[in-house]
Amino acid sequence: MPQTHEGPDASASPVDAVAVRVATLADDAALAALDGDTWSPLHAVTPRPVPPYAPYFDERHLPDDVLVAEEDGRLLGYVRIVPPTPLVSNTHVLQINGFAVAEEARGRGIGRTLVRAVCAEVRRRGCRRITLRVLGHNAPARALYEAEGFAVEGVLPGEFFLDGRYVDDVLMGRALTD
């Protein structure tokens, strides 16, 4: 599923050379490193990973469920989708369950490109909704999601205790129907 950024003036876009594609098993080490390198209390609820990083892919996280952004063979970001529940009645929904952009690539529109690409992929899979969870204090991520049509659908106040304070877990979603 190779994709490039498309927008009103894609020819002037700073992400022109960035391709979005489905991950492969060969991306495992680069994804694990990107995950570790981008760890931050702004978005992580798990302890900081330390090298050597654990494999990125496992029985619940497969390459087909990850889109990667790359430029000149370098992995610059990823977004992972998973079913939010194992229920048949919920198969029309997929959830963003991992998202990162390399520090040196931030501010170039790569995050926006990945969000748009994953929405298109979820639609292609026949799903009607996409959801996510984001920490309440992660203003940059929340602003990106809101700009791309996601709305706050619920808040779990003080759901996590991180860095010495209680942090809300914000549930966001977006319909993918026309």
Results as ranks from 00 to 15, higher is better:
5 H>D: 07
7 G>L: 02
8 P>W: 01
9 D>P: 01
10 A>T: 05
11 S>Y: 06
12 A>K: 08
13 S>Q: 03
14 P>Y: 05
14 P>N: 09
14 P>I: 04
21 R>T: 03
22 V>K: 05
22 V>W: 00
24 T>M: 00
26 A>F: 04
29 A>Q: 11
31 L>R: 05
31 L>C: 06
35 D>S: 10
40 S>V: 13
42 L>W: 01
42 L>M: 13
42 L>I: 02
44 A>H: 08
46 T>Y: 09
46 T>D: 08
47 P>Q: 09
49 P>H: 08
55 P>H: 07
55 P>R: 09
58 D>C: 00
58 D>V: 00
60 R>H: 12
60 R>E: 10
60 R>C: 01
62 L>E: 12
62 L>N: 06
63 P>C: 06
64 D>Q: 14
66 V>G: 02
67 L>F: 08
69 A>M: 14
69 A>D: 07
70 E>Q: 15
72 D>G: 13
73 G>I: 13
75 L>H: 05
75 L>P: 04
75 L>A: 07
75 L>C: 11
76 L>G: 02
77 G>D: 02
79 V>E: 09
81 I>A: 03
81 I>R: 04
82 V>Q: 14
83 P>L: 08
88 V>Q: 04
88 V>E: 05
89 S>C: 09
94 L>E: 12
97 N>R: 15
98 G>K: 12
103 E>K: 07
103 E>W: 08
106 R>L: 06
106 R>V: 00
107 G>N: 08
107 G>W: 10
110 I>A: 04
113 T>A: 15
114 L>P: 01
115 V>P: 05
116 R>D: 03
123 R>Y: 06
126 G>K: 07
128 R>V: 04
128 R>N: 09
131 T>M: 14
131 T>E: 15
132 L>F: 12
134 V>D: 10
135 L>W: 12
137 H>C: 04
138 N>I: 07
140 P>Q: 08
143 A>T: 10
144 L>P: 03
147 A>W: 00
149 G>Q: 05
150 F>C: 03
157 P>D: 11
158 G>N: 14
159 E>A: 15
161 F>L: 13
163 D>H: 11
166 Y>I: 00
166 Y>K: 13
166 Y>T: 06
167 V>S: 06
168 D>K: 06
169 D>H: 13
176 L>Q: 02
177 T>I: 15
178 D>K: 10
